[in-house]
Design a protein around this nucleic acid. Structure first.
Lengths: 134, 134
DNA sequence: GCTTGACCTTCCAGTAACTAGAAGGTTTAT
DNA sequence: ATAAACCTTCTAGTTACTGGAAGGTCAAGC
């Protein structure tokens, strides 16, 4: 199958697949006589694997490690678990950070009248945070 | 005051301040005779404003808009409120996405034995998601 | 007077993970 | 014959910095 079919089946874009090949994340695709890349089902499996790993937050370097594990018959499942647990911890930190930002944004939006006038609690807050608490 | 003092007071790095000047986010700093950038309290105010806006999730383009509003005596507070509400909506989408990823990661980690053997629910899940549900 | 260390300057390059677009070859259908 | 929908490679741009090189400046200590 050609690259756009592989893209469709994996949920990646053709550009992204070429990029993954370029950086060596996936093996160079076989080529048809006309030079077009050809993908079989095992190639598509790899692409889907990567797409799913990306989807739960792994970066490309981590995808590389996960693919290595996937291909290693002597792997130890604790290695994969370690990657997941670490990712989960970092993700939680990021979530906590975003939730804190969200709280601040909501507080600012509530305190702002949001009318035609220039008085603005948001701009005040950004200029002197916490001033309204004192 | 020199750039490192301004950096310290604003919580930004000196590199970042120079970068903000380079892209025109802040006005070019005054220079001392020796060519060193000089910052007064109003310059530091701007830097702090930006640092706080960045801290609640605004990108540099949005910081630019917020600074424009801050400086506009004829501003309407609803414009600032709109920016905040939009940012809040996007942030919530991002949070929801990360929380969903987090759920998947936790499920995978739980289902994986995490031992010395090669059988790994995580790699299985990434290779064929939802297979265990069927 | 000289050195040392901590400042400061500019400029160039690199990061992550693509995405856009140009210029051109191929295939398929009409 | 031509149009469309593919495919190819290559270059450059995105965001918001960060690191490092090469070199100027300043204050303190010997």
């Amino acid at each position: 199958m050609n690259i756009s079919a592989a893209a469709h089946q994996s949920g990646l874009s053709a550009k992204t697949i070429r990029y993954y090949e370029e950086i060596g994340l996936i093996a160079p695709a076989a080529r048809a006589e006309n030079g077009y890349r050809q993908y079989d089902s095992t190639a598509v499996d790899d692409l889907q694997f990567i797409a799913r790993a990306r989807g739960v937050g792994f970066d490309l370097q981590e995808c590389r490690q996960l693919l290595d594990l996937l291909r290693d018959p002597h792997r130890q499942s604790r290695h994969a678990q370690k990657l997941v647990l670490e990712k989960s911890r970092h993700l939680q930190q990021r979530i906590d950070q975003l939730v804190a930002m969200q709280r601040e944004l909501r507080t600012m939006a509530e305190r702002c009248r949001g009318d035609e006038g220039p008085d603005c609690a948001i701009l005040d807050d950004l200029a002197a945070p916490g001033a309204h608490e004192r």
